[in-house]
Amino acid sequence: MVPREVPLGGPRAMTVRRTLPQRERSLIGAWCFVDHYGPDRVTDTGGMKVAPHPHTGLQTVSWLFTGVIEHRDSADNHALVRPGEVNLMTAGRGISHSEVSTPAATELHGAQLWVALPDSARHVDPGFQHYQPPPVGGEGWEGRVFLGSLLGSTSPVATHTPLLGAELVLAAGTILDIDVDTSFEHGVLVDTGVVRVDGDEVKQHELAYVAPGRGSLHVEAGADARLLLLGGPPFGESIVMWWNFVGRTHEEIVGYREEWQAQITRDGVVVGDSQDVADGRFGVVLDDHLPPIPAPALPNARLKERR
């Protein structure tokens, strides 16, 4: 799957490459959103400055290759996202958060991923987990498993459906056969280089899809390469995803939008600082002095289910 470019924001509109969802595929396991960005020089792009915004019904997974991003959320979590460390935020019934690159970050390069929560867990309380996976490796390759189990390494980070998330770095000429769960479907996002996955070429920035039923993935690196391997069993539920919300019906998304707008506006005007936000479903992000982001207008049509 070839990415499309989407402006994320910032003074000069930092651009991300979005490979999921696509017209032909909305989910890989419970993974429902993949943004891949950089390497971008902060002096050129203005860096990342994403003001407080809401989420429901999902978990965000932040993974960096270079740079540092400051995370704040309305569940009173304040953390730095650093290379080789995963930050997982559970939105559940509702949360708001901000993401801002730090002054020390001269370059930003990484991925922002979302996981859809199953119906049984999508109204849980918000939460946050941080983990630094140890490297595992062999001749010509190194990996870090930040979710699930792979290559003899298991992450303790809790998810509500079985998931796999790992970074793999391969030297030119490396051939790696990776044992995987046969019940999982997989996505291979190529960050750098060009690889072959089960014989099919996957170019830089592309996302390859591998259907369930395979017990191993055969990966060949023609040049030095880095990739993210994502996986999970087919989700088995329909979702409605719009802006930053994951729900189950059009009406539910409309309700989330109305609640957020009511929470961040006074007399129809967006409040000037996140500290002025009234507490509601999405809580209050403290101390970042950024006005919250208003929700865009809904389309003039019913939102479609993604399967």
Rank of each mutant, 00 (worst) to 15 (best):
M89R: 14
S120N: 02
P212R: 05
L147H: 02
P299I: 07
L168F: 04
E85C: 13
T60D: 12
T15D: 09
G38H: 08
V16Y: 12
P118L: 00
A91C: 03
V86H: 03
M14W: 11
A104K: 14
G110K: 03
A166W: 02
E5C: 09
A75N: 14
H205C: 12
L290T: 05
P162V: 03
G57R: 09
E252K: 05
I95S: 05
S120K: 07
T56Y: 08
H78N: 10
H205D: 15
G46F: 02
A297C: 09
G148Q: 01
V169P: 04
V246I: 06
I175M: 13
F282K: 00
E252R: 08
G110L: 04
R248F: 02
W114H: 00
A75G: 10
V271L: 12
I253K: 00
P134H: 12
M48E: 14
P133D: 08
E142K: 10
I239Y: 01
N87D: 07
I175N: 15
S238I: 05
L228P: 09
G173I: 00
L150F: 01
R23I: 07
I95T: 06
A211L: 04
Q275V: 12
V202A: 07
P134S: 11
T106Y: 14
L228W: 08
A221M: 13
F146G: 01
C32Y: 06
